[in-house]
């Protein structure tokens, strides 16, 4: 047999994955993808960070989590707050959502993805979800004004998180100053 479970396209992986999730055809539902673009642009060269547009894929994204030390997910999160509110969820908060229902338009995806990674023993050591409270989740391209206006704040939050990760560990090494 020429094939093994771990074989094939085994590329060196950046220790940090920034994963945008959402549907770009459903207005604010796609805020995670817009946020990803913005973070990517303002981050400059970041060899130790990988940025992936996950769209609305679920299980199929599992491969991108393998071998990561840290994961930052960007998504629309509906917690019943004011549209444009930026949410940052970490460990305990995320665990809470697993037991609850109905928090984000993609909960089935994002949380299922994390649970499956855990089942395989491949959950990244640190997981943070950054989300923006949506105003309009219906067919259409482009964000609502409130969510568009929240992008700079959300991007700043992601930047802080990435910097915090760098301070607290050596995963970024010397090359990741700009991440």
């Amino acid at each position: 047999m020429t094939w093994t479970m771990t074989g094939g396209l085994a590329e060196p992986r950046a220790p940090v994955l920034v994963l945008g999730i959402g549907n770009a055809l459903l207005q604010d539902d796609g805020v995670g993808l817009r946020l990803l673009e913005r973070v990517k642009e303002t981050a400059g060269p970041a060899p130790d960070c990988e940025f992936i547009d996950g769209g609305t894929q679920g299980i199929a994204l599992l491969g991108y989590l393998t071998g990561r030390e840290k994961l930052v997910m960007l998504d629309a999160i509906g917690l019943g707050g004011e549209p444009g509110t930026v949410h940052v969820l970490r460990g305990g908060d995320i665990e809470g959502f697993r037991a609850r229902r109905a928090a984000t338009p993609h909960e089935g995806n994002a949380l299922e993805l994390l649970a499956m990674a855990k089942l395989l023993g491949e959950e990244p050591g640190e997981v943070v979800i950054v989300g923006v409270e949506p105003a309009a989740v219906r067919t259409g391209i482009g964000l609502s004004d409130a969510v568009e206006a929240a992008l700079p704040r959300a991007a700043a939050a992601v930047k802080d998180i990435l910097e915090g990760m760098r301070r607290r560990s050596d995963v970024f090494g010397d090359s990741g100053k700009d991440c």
Binding site: T56, R101, P105, H106, G108, L111
Partner: peptide
């Protein structure tokens, strides 16, 4: 039905 009715239930994961 993501194909047919396009998408993600607005209330996310539901039993």
């Amino acid at each position: 039905l993501a194909c047919a009715s396009h998408v993600l239930s607005p209330d996310g994961e539901t039993l």
